[in-house]
């Protein structure tokens, strides 16, 4: 059933359903995260440290240890760029792109700040939907077509919005995720390890990015379709969020834990002068 709203028929679409399911999604996420973290806590055994953090020649200084913490995080990318440049660069760009879109795209920021009000402090960093204007601009490309005297939207990014805008970042993300997905097919062909979770996460993410792009660009240009596509976009994102603790997606939290753990045991505890 569709309800009239001004000149538009809106109502029984996926959009309100998706919004209604957001809080349960967050609940399921925390439940899953608690399960995952609980497993670590249950199996945790306090490590026995036989030596103090000094050795025959003394250990590296505190400053160097902090520097090495940075290196611990950077080493993977540094070595990857040297030894596997294409996949590493694609991976890095894809992560940066995804983080920018999820957390700084203006529309997403409004969504996050609705549920987490302090998020508003980041509003000045919001990335606009297009470089030219806040209007729908699916095919405006980079040239400013707005009939204003300003070449770019008013934001802190200035001319950088030529690249830092929702549309271009999404085009890039579709391309980069596409490369990632294609790589998965190569892995299948080479009969190397591939997991159901890889497909689950990447395919859902890919679908979600495309749905988000279609919704924002009003393709097709119809309010009912808009509501459904935007609703589907949020619903798919909710599936990803709810299942995050059981998929590779949880690495967005565990990454820090893993690297700090590596640094603590291999550098802080063992690295000698």
């Amino acid at each position: 059933m569709q309800l009239p709203f001004g000149p538009y028929p809106v109502g029984n679409s996926l959009y309100p359903l998706a919004l209604d399911l957001f809080i349960p999604t967050v609940f399921f996420f925390f439940l899953g995260a608690a399960y995952r973290i609980g497993r670590y806590l249950i199996t945790y055994q306090k490590p026995f440290i036989p030596y103090p953090t000094s050795s025959v020649r003394g250990n590296i200084s505190g400053g160097e240890k902090v520097k090495e913490l940075f290196n611990t995080f950077a080493n993977s990318s540094r070595v990857g760029i040297k030894r596997k440049p294409i996949t590493t660069i694609v991976g890095l760009l894809m992560h940066i792109d995804l983080i920018l879109i999820i957390f700084l795209l203006a529309q997403h920021m409004i969504f996050w700040s609705y549920y987490i009000p302090p998020y508003r402090v980041l509003f000045p960093l919001a990335i606009p939907e297009s470089s030219a204007s806040g209007e729908l601009a699916a095919f405006y490309w980079s040239q400013p077509f707005t009939p204003t005297p300003y070449p770019f939207v008013h934001d802190v990014w200035g001319p950088l919005t030529i690249i830092l805008n929702g549309q271009y970042l999404t085009y890039l993300l579709i391309l980069l995720l596409g490369i990632y997905l294609a790589h998965k097919f190569i892995v299948v062909a080479e009969r190397l390890s591939i997991r159901a979770g890889d497909w689950w996460f990447f395919v859902l993410l890919y679908i979600d990015v495309i749905l988000g792009f279609l919704a924002t660009s009003h393709i097709p240009n119809n309010i009912v379709w808009y509501d459904n596509i935007l609703g589907a976009h949020i619903l798919v994102a909710e599936i990803i969020i709810a299942t995050l603790p059981f998929t590779r997606g949880f690495h967005m939290f565990e990454f820090y834990f893993g690297k700090i753990r590596e640094w603590y045991y291999m550098i802080y505890r063992r690295w000698m002068k």
């Binding site: 670590y40 199996t43 945790y44 055994q45 990857g80 590493t88």
Partner: peptide, 20 residues
């Protein structure tokens, strides 16, 4: 134990280790 559990469940199959 928690370390082995982390190694088992946290891999994202990115294959960066191939290079090493």
């Amino acid at each position: 134990n928690s370390t082995i559990l982390y190694y088992l469940q946290s891999c994202v199959n990115c294959k960066a280790c191939e290079a090493a």
